[in-house]
């Protein structure tokens, strides 16, 4: 079992309104089997013992599905592994003596709350603007009354696997939320259940996305590369197509 000594540069910021700064910590005895967040746990235990406030970071399920965790590690959203959330990154990636820069997701639509914790409620508001099928509980047809081809179902599923972590925004040079928004528009737009509201949905969700202050898509594809769930750029194309159509139709 390999252990290592690391130098961490971590963004520290008291609250929304305060100025932040990078601070440097040294941590020893990091085990290669640890997850990245477990390494931060060890750092925090050490800081508490020294009477220093621990580093705040969002995390919950620690198995890559809740979308809570997210930080930029050495310039990469969720760190250097592809299709991985921060909690799934393991320390075997690093070697003794490495320096690691840990920063919060940066976007004006994601204000920093504390240290590495950001406010991603903009995503919720975008979904609230139309990311659903308007059915009430009860009175719906039998599940098998709506046959859906396997290919369509699979494509919709792939889009629906988005965990809303915000890595797409964090990594996009324009802090654009197009991958996130398009994943939901694709998921519902591909399915027969989503057809009645398809045009209005795309108009409403995009209007909310713009209101939140995200940047524009310049089709660099960085979002797709860093997406822990591998959500594809094809979704953005589908959204653009629907959006154009909806604008022409309105």
């Amino acid at each position: 079992m390999r252990t290592m000594k690391l130098k961490l540069h971590v963004w520290r910021q008291e609250n929304r309104n305060s100025q932040g700064r990078m601070e440097t910590y040294t941590i020893e005895g990091v085990n290669e089997h640890m997850s990245f967040l477990e390494m931060l746990d060890v750092l925090n235990e050490k800081l508490i013992k020294e009477g220093k406030e621990p580093v705040a970071f969002d995390h919950d399920c620690r198995e890559g599905i809740c979308g809570s965790c997210g930080m930029v590690i050495n310039g990469r959203a969720h760190g250097p592994w592809y299709k991985t959330t921060t909690c799934q990154l393991h320390m075997r990636e690093f070697k003794d003596g490495d320096e690691i820069y840990i920063e919060p997701f940066r976007a004006s639509a994601f204000p920093v709350i504390k240290d590495l914790v950001v406010d991603r409620s903009a995503f919720d508001r975008i979904i609230q603007a139309g990311g659903y099928v308007s059915v009430n509980t009860g009175g719906v047809p039998d599940a098998n009354a709506i046959p859906i081809g396997k290919e369509t179902a699979d494509q919709a599923f792939e889009a629906a696997t988005c965990i809303g972590c915000g890595a797409c925004v964090a990594t996009c040079k324009n802090a654009s939320a197009m991958l996130f928004v398009s994943a939901k528009i694709s998921h519902l737009g591909l399915l027969p259940q989503g057809q009645p509201e398809r045009m209005q949905r795309v108009l409403d969700m995009v209007a909310q996305m713009d209101k939140e202050g995200f940047g524009n898509c310049t089709n660099t594809g960085a979002c797709e590369v860093e997406c822990p769930k591998g959500i594809s750029l094809v979704n953005i194309a589908r959204m653009n197509y629907d959006y154009f159509k909806a604008q022409l139709k309105k």
């Binding site: 099928v133 059915v135 719906v140 599940a143 046959p147 396997k150 599923f157 399915l191």
Partner: peptide, 22 residues
């Protein structure tokens, strides 16, 4: 049984067979 109907109506993409059924 109602739960599955409800979820499908909401657009939950359950696994399907080639025939289009769940």
């Amino acid at each position: 049984v109602n739960i599955i109907d409800q979820c499908v109506a909401q657009g939950v993409p359950f696994a399907r067979e080639y025939g289009g059924l769940l």
